[in-house]
Write a protein that binds this DNA or RNA. Structure first.
Length: 510
RNA sequence: GGCGUUAUGGUGUAACUGGUUAACACGUCGCCCUCUCAAGGCGAAGAGUCCGGGUUCGAGCCCCGGUAACGCUACCA
């Protein structure tokens, strides 16, 4: 597939953390660019000086890179770096104010835009009047035909003015790759404000709808792929393209991502920002895969797992759904487990280590290197039991030791231990342990269990559960064959892990 | 209120230009494996496609009319 002139952009405002909705927009832009051998650029929309923060920009950049979505043009990394990539910069809107001013002057000179001296109160009154008769809220154009003399007089009187675009009276149409042709009546648009009036904090700063359009046009954006909350803004932007005589690009408006209650996904639904998912121990490939599937399906209708590379082959904007999607943590977890299983041990160890560091009394004394293979085995054993990495320490905790009192106080454990058979089994096992020298290997252990079974006739759960509690403090967990050597080897690592022998003796002693 | 967008099992998606019993995945449930919990294997239930009309031999796909949800309706982005 070749479309030589494809240029797309991801244009977030650095006013908060990158959340899954925006990340998905970034992903689709990136995929479309890669698929068509086009250019993907990053532009920072920081015209809201009050809310924009550099730390958010840095975080944004870090998150994008973590996801693997590199951009071809845009700000350098991190934000402080002066070097930008690309010939269409600057890529931060706060650095493009002169460009906007120049365009505004042109519009004013050509009579395509006009100064509006109406105050906020006057406009508010107009809106109320319109609302009273259930009419559309359209600006009255009171300032459209002011004479040059009146304008001068107003300015001389120190009156502040905003700049409005004069909307021509014809329908505003655009094409949306996911929704098809869209049309708005001109009267639905009203004459939009382009530049804020000189009162207030954001004095004379051009508004969003105006600057995106200028930037998209000047940066040669061929396809505007963004959230569908912009769909009603699009006619205004189309009008701006037209008054400048610029080619209107293709649009693709992506549906909203909702929470389980069909409300817009927000913090109260759980994790929503990319950095939070990262901290929780989700793999970027899982997140990317999941996000891709949220609003898009492969052509074969079957494949669910895609690497970023496979996605660039399979992705197409035409197959993106227009309907809103509900974020399903279960499916994300399934994908994360899928990728966790595929991750090679070295990467796994590196990723998992931070979750253990400092979590256990003696673990930080040991280096990861010292633990090496042992740590790897620990991970291999518990990985199938977690959805994301931060659950690992809790799952693996029994290997490091357990709280004897808490274990004995646990209701399910009490039920198990109350049986006569449990006392018998543990008594027998205590005997074997005391008579044994050296480490307890799985073979030795298995022999003991067989002998106890033969001698007492106790088997199955009655046999194993009490032993499991004595060893790990819980009646369930991975196979003894795996757990025993981990404990025994761990006991030799000076981590403060007590051996199988110690555990049983201590437990039986109670 | 105005304008716009959307509508297939609990969830995400499929279903070629209208054509057999609406498919796949997650989740759920059951079975197998097993001392247990996961993992893995096998299987099942779950929608008749928002509602009501219409066109057609035939409609999830086309047309008309509703309803609901969401978005915009800002000198926020």
């Amino acid at each position: 597939m070749t479309a030589p002139n494809v240029r797309v952009r991801f244009a977030p405002s650095p006013t908060g953390l990158l959340h899954v909705g925006n990340a998905r927009t970034a992903l689709y832009n990136w995929l479309f660019a890669r698929r068509t051998h086009g250019v993907f650029l990053l532009r920072i929309e920081d015209t809201d000086l009050e809310r924009s923060e550099t730390r958010y920009e840095d975080q944004l950049i870090e998150d994008l890179r973590w996801l693997g979505l590199e951009w071809d043009e845009g700000p350098g990394q991190p934000a402080e770096a002066t070097g930008e990539m690309g010939a269409y910069g600057p890529y931060r809107q706060s650095e493009r104010l002169a460009v906007y001013a120049e365009h505004t002057a042109r519009l004013l000179a050509e009579g395509k835009a006009y100064r509006c001296f109406c105050t906020q109160d006057e406009l508010e009154a107009e809106r109320k009047t319109a609302a009273a008769v259930n009419g559309p809220q359209i600006y009255s154009r009171r300032c459209l035909n002011l004479s040059p003399a009146e304008i001068e007089a107003n300015i001389a009187a120190g009156k502040h003015f905003a700049v409005r675009l004069r909307i021509e009276d014809h329908p505003l149409r655009f094409h949306d790759m996911v929704r098809g042709p869209v049309e708005f009546a001109a009267e639905a648009v009203s004459d939009p404000i382009l530049v804020r009036s000189a009162s207030g904090v954001s004095a004379g700063v051009p508004v969003y709808n105006y600057v995106v359009t200028i930037d998209d046009a000047l940066m040669g954006i061929s396809h505007v792929i963004r959230g569908d909350d912009h769909i009603s803004n699009t006619p205004k932007q189309v009008a701006i393209y037209q008054t400048f005589g610029w080619k209107v690009p293709e649009f693709a408006h992506l549906s909203t991502i909702l929470g389980a209650d069909r409300e817009r996904l927000s913090k109260r639904h759980g994790a929503t920002s990319i950095s939070t998912f990262r901290e929780m121990g989700y793999l970027p490939e899982a997140l990317v895969n999941y996000l891709a599937l949220l609003g898009w399906g492969a052509e074969d209708g079957n494949t669910e797992t895609f690497t970023l590379n496979e996605l660039t082959q399979a992705f197409s904007l035409e197959r993106v759904t227009a309907s809103p999607a509900i974020f399903d943590f279960d499916k994300l977890n399934w994908l994360n487990r899928h990728y966790l299983k595929q991750t090679d041990p070295a990467r796994m160890a590196a990723l998992a280590w931070p979750y253990f560091a400092g979590r256990f009394e003696h673990l930080d004394q040991a280096t990861q290197h010292l633990l090496g293979p042992w740590f790897g085995r620990l991970l291999a054993l518990f990985l199938p039991h977690v959805d994301h990495l931060d659950q690992l320490p809790a799952k693996a905790a029994p290997i490091f030791g357990y709280d004897l009192e808490a274990a004995c106080a646990n209701e399910e454990n009490i039920a198990v231990l109350a049986a006569d058979s449990a006392r018998t089994v543990l008594g027998e096992l205590g005997g074997y342990v005391r008579a044994h020298n050296g480490r307890v290997t799985p073979d030795v252990f298995k022999e003991w269990m067989n002998e106890i079974k033969a001698a007492t006739g106790i088997k199955g759960k009655d046999l194993f559960h009490p032993v499991r509690i004595a060893l790990t403090g819980a009646h369930s967990g991975p196979d003894f064959d795996k757990v025993l050597p981990l404990i025994e080897d761990g006991a030799e690592l000076a981590l403060g892990i007590s051996s199988v022998r110690d555990r049983i003796e201590q437990f039986v002693g109670v």
